[in-house]
Amino acid sequence: MKALVVYESMFGNTAQVAEAIAAGLRETMSVDVREVKDAPAVPADDIDVIVAGGPTHAFSMSRTRTRTDAIARGATHGEVDFGLREWINGIPDERHSSSLVTFDTRVSKVRRLPGSAARSAAKAGRRHGFASYASPESFYVDDMSGPLEDGELERATAWGRELATLAAAR
């Protein structure tokens, strides 16, 4: 089985989570990890699962305006004009053989507020013809720039392991 992990990261936290998820997936499947700007515009047909994630900005996936703001606040990763939203929206609307599972990073102080990049990405994926076999997942940072809360990387690895098990059972 093959997985593609695609991530957008502004402060490096989401990149760390993506790598941890990939580590869990790698225990039983082949995994390619790509920053969103380097991800294939059309994922290959032999990919069984795409795990895609990004930071939650203004209760959703990032936009040019929110990425510009993150860079103004010290972000050293990512691109102003291209993120997870643009990548998903660039994928053709058709039934895909891959499943799409989504994750995000978000500030722990707003755990209970509505909206998340993972849920928005999952919804966009469904509009573009992807099925999913797992609920969107959030991983928490202490502040906008991080760091990740204690235990989040271990939780991400365990979630990757669970995703691989669920994919194999399908």
Rank of each mutant, 00 (worst) to 15 (best):
L4E: 04
Y7N: 08
E8A: 12
E8D: 15
S9T: 15
T14G: 01
T14D: 07
A15Y: 00
A20F: 01
A20D: 06
A20H: 06
A22H: 05
A23I: 00
E27Y: 07
T28G: 13
V33I: 13
V33C: 05
V33Y: 03
V36C: 09
A39I: 11
A44K: 15
D46A: 06
D46T: 06
I50E: 05
I50C: 02
V51D: 01
P55T: 11
T56W: 03
T56F: 06
S62E: 10
T64V: 14
R65D: 14
T66C: 03
R67H: 01
T68R: 15
D69F: 08
A75D: 06
G78I: 03
F82K: 08
L84Q: 06
L84A: 05
R85V: 02
E86P: 09
W87N: 09
N89C: 12
L100A: 10
L100Q: 11
V101P: 04
T102R: 12
F103V: 08
D104I: 01
R106H: 04
S108V: 15
V110S: 10
A117K: 05
A121E: 10
K123C: 12
H128C: 08
S135G: 07
P136Y: 02
E137K: 15
E137R: 15
F139Y: 09
F139M: 07
Y140K: 04
V141H: 01
V141K: 00
A156E: 00
T157N: 13
W159M: 11
A164K: 03
A167H: 11
A169Q: 14
